[in-house]
Design a protein around this nucleic acid. Structure first.
Length: 527
RNA sequence: GGCCUCGUCAUCUAGUGGUUUAGGAUACAUGGUUCUCAACCAUGUCACAUGGGUUCAAAUCCCAUCGAGGCCGCCA
């Protein structure tokens, strides 16, 4: 049991995520957000979203929007954030300059920070030198003892500068709630740059000031920040403010065991949305990356996670992102949806691939992914035939247990909506003996013909799966002599053009008598 | 190179000194069901990184080694 947890009183927790909007909303951030959210919810505390856009060159509104959209999609709601401020000032660092200015001026006045006029070239050369002699890379301290006059002269001369922290050389220790005591010697990082000018702090300073100003009680962030923590603690000491409690989460790794968010092409959470993963899938999956309930229960909703989540069940070692398990989970959630809901979710994908065209009553198009359904009628693009929502539901129902992600639905059911199926006669032959193709083909042709005749006898009013199954199975037993596949395989291929699909009876029912017979005739012609 | 963190099946993990022939899930394999695929059911393969201690007893505690990852920016 993590000791700190015992002392928590409901309502007093304030946690945050502090993303910088410089790239896609990646999985690592989503997981950090989730854990912070769960922790806050569990103790009725506040989960805060702060946008760290001090780097105006790299920060883009587009990425900020993506983060907000992604979090909303996942159902991770923040109590305070850029779009719903609280009483702690703006939640974008770019709008907090006045606040930072006070702190930086104070640090400067008290001699905790100093002007540094070294050029990037000088610093780089020094860095290389230190590396070459196996020394920790840190600033030489060259500008530390510059006299007031020199500083004034340089400033007056328009020399560019940064503000550096006069790092005290000492051992810095802190307690990580997960990992225990972590020690660090401050000389390994030395006099770090903390601000570009009087109102533009860099990450470490901005972070310390904001966490204090926003009364953050616990910082739960990725393990990659462990080395920032001593710097932030020293800054807090210089500012004479108290530090929050820390917990560093294990990293999420890709399949090469490298930090996931470090990959060249970072996959956005919104791309998972587009691929047809449900938010509940993502939440459930993310929760289990570095955490587990200690029971054998695997399926958790956001709400049940709030109940059962606990920081002391968090893993210390990095967790590899396993897409197969994500697929499995999504398949599970697909199977647990009602067919009406599932159809709603599939619709945008079918429309996008232009298999079907919605017949609108209004101009509400395009519907967003997962949007509420308003359309009851569709046209099949290729045939112009009108179909109902109910029909679509029946088609999708055939594939509910085969579907892993929503984006796969078009390719699974497109044969329902195509005029011509594209397949070879070898496929019709299937797994039969390839050594005697002519004989086999003749047999199959014959079998298909029999199937056609059987089906022709069925009245349109009786064109139901059960009746089709009864007649066709009877035929298959007779003809196949124990191997029903001799009829059923070619029949299914004739109807679908696929080697894998749902069963022929249910497909035939939905295709209708006319199309079914037409497709069988076409198959016969191929042979 | 320096510093930090971590180390149970392929992967996510249970395990907090004896109840463990190390459990579950995914993946994989086989069988059942089946025209096919999926789903479902059953079965199976697979792990305590290594070496030293401590202890009556160690996956569990300690040390070393090895391995993996992270950070070392006028990025966050």
């Amino acid at each position: 049991m993590i000791e700190e947890l015992k002392l928590i009183r409901p309502g007093e927790i304030r946690v945050r995520i502090a993303p910088s909007p410089t790239g896609p909303f990646h999985i690592g951030l989503a997981r950090t957000a989730l854990f912070n959210y769960l922790f806050a919810q569990k103790y009725q505390g506040s989960f805060i979203l702060r946008i760290e856009d001090t780097n105006i060159k790299r920060s883009k509104k587009r990425w900020e929007n993506e983060i907000l959209e992604g979090l909303k999609w996942l159902g991770i709601e923040w109590q305070e954030g850029p779009d719903c401020g609280g009483s702690y000032g703006p939640y974008r660092q770019s709008e907090r300059k006045e606040i930072y200015k006070k702190y930086i001026e104070k640090l400067l006045k008290e001699g905790e920070i100093y002007y540094c006029f070294c050029t990037p070239e000088e610093l780089e050369a020094h860095r290389q030198y230190l590396m070459s002699i196996s020394q920790p890379v840190r600033y030489s301290g060259k500008c530390r003892e510059l006299s007031d006059q020199e500083v004034k002269r340089n400033l007056a001369g328009g020399k560019s500068y940064v503000l550096r922290f006069k790092t005290l050389l000492k051992k810095v220790s802190f307690k990580d709630m997960l990992r225990g005591k972590i020690d660090c010697q401050s000389e390994i990082f030395g006099d770090i740059v903390v601000a570009k000018d009087i109102s533009t702090p860099l990450y470490n300073l901005a972070c310390v000031i904001d966490d204090y100003e926003m009364k953050i009680t616990h910082i739960i962030r990725g393990e990659d920040h462990i080395s920032n923590t001593p710097k932030q603690i020293l800054l807090a000491e210089a500012l004479k403010i108290k530090t929050p409690k820390y917990l560093h989460l294990p990293l999420i790794l890709d399949q090469d065991r490298a930090k996931l968010s470090k990959r060249d092409r970072i996959k956005s959470v919104l791309e998972y949305k587009k691929d047809g993963f449900f938010p509940e899938t993502m939440i459930n999956f993310l929760a289990f990356l570095g955490w587990n309930p200690g029971t054998q229960k695997e399926i958790f909703s956001l709400n049940t996670l709030v109940q059962e989540f606990s920081l002391d069940k968090i893993q210390k070692s990095g967790a590899e992102f396993n897409p197969q398990k994500l697929d499995w989970l999504n398949g599970f959630y697909i199977r647990s949806k009602s067919i009406e809901k599932l159809t709603e979710f599939c619709l945008p994908y079918l429309i996008e691939k232009q298999l079907i065209i919605p017949q609108f009553k209004t101009e509400q198009y395009p519907p967003a992914y997962g949007a509420e359904i308003i359309i009851q009628k569709f046209k099949i693009k290729e045939t112009g035939e009108e179909i109902s929502l109910n029909y679509l539901q029946k088609v999708i129902a055939l594939y509910q247990e085969r579907l892993k992600k929503l984006s796969e639905i078009p390719e699974l059911i497109d044969f329902f909506f195509q005029k011509e199926l594209d397949y070879s006669k070898e496929l019709l032959r299937g797994m039969s003996d390839a050594r005697q193709p002519e004989i086999v083909e003749k047999e199959i042709k014959n079998n298909l013909d029999k199937a056609k005749k059987t089906l022709q006898k069925i009245k349109p009013g009786n064109w139901k799966k059960e009746n089709l199954e009864k007649s066709l199975l009877k035929l298959a037993e007779e003809v196949g002599k124990g191997d029903r596949g001799k009829v059923l395989w070619p029949l299914r291929v004739a109807l679908t053009g696929r080697e894998a699909s749902a069963g022929p009876f249910e497909i035939a029912e939905l295709l209708g008598k006319e199309k079914t017979l037409e497709r069988i005739k076409k198959a016969i012609k191929k042979l």
